[in-house]
């Protein structure tokens, strides 16, 4: 066995990437349809589906908060990891800078959304 092997911290990022990939595959297309097509065009759904009152109530519910945080944070961690590795593959050799930019923005966005969601109250 080789000596001086350093354990990779990749499982943290790979885990978030995997969770985000699964979550976005399950919910992404449906959310795009509801928020981007059906509600703005008034198709299929009641007119007040995404009214302020309803959305506020959703964001004040503990499960609703969890869902919104998961959608924002996991999607971003998924995207950050994918972009980071794609940079690598197209020859932009991802150093510390690219890593900080990709994962850092996902991290900051996660913190901001958690703070905002909590500040909306219960």
């Amino acid at each position: 066995m080789k000596s001086g092997l350093k354990r990779s911290n990749a499982p943290i990022f790979w885990g978030l990437f995997g969770a985000g990939g699964m979550f976005s595959a399950l919910f992404g297309p449906m959310l795009v349809f509801i928020t981007g097509i059906a509600v703005p065009l008034g198709l299929m759904l009641p007119a007040n589906t995404m009214s302020y009152a309803k959305m506020m109530a959703f964001a004040q519910n503990i499960i609703g908060k969890g869902f919104i945080l998961a959608v924002i944070a996991l999607f971003l961690w998924f995207a950050a990891h994918r972009i980071f590795h794609s940079l690598h593959e197209i020859g932009i050799h991802a150093g510390v800078g690219a890593k900080l930019l990709c994962y850092g923005s996902a991290f900051i966005a996660t913190v901001i959304s958690a703070v905002v969601l909590l500040s909306l109250g219960f």
């Binding site: 066995m1 092997l5 990779s8 990749a10 590795h85 593959e89």
Partner: peptide, 19 residues
């Protein structure tokens, strides 16, 4: 378990981007 040290290392499986 012995081989895991190499698998989990920075030279290990996480270099792969599932191409």
């Amino acid at each position: 378990e012995e081989r895991m040290e190499l698998v989990a290392s920075e030279e290990g499986v996480f270099n792969c981007s599932a191409v």
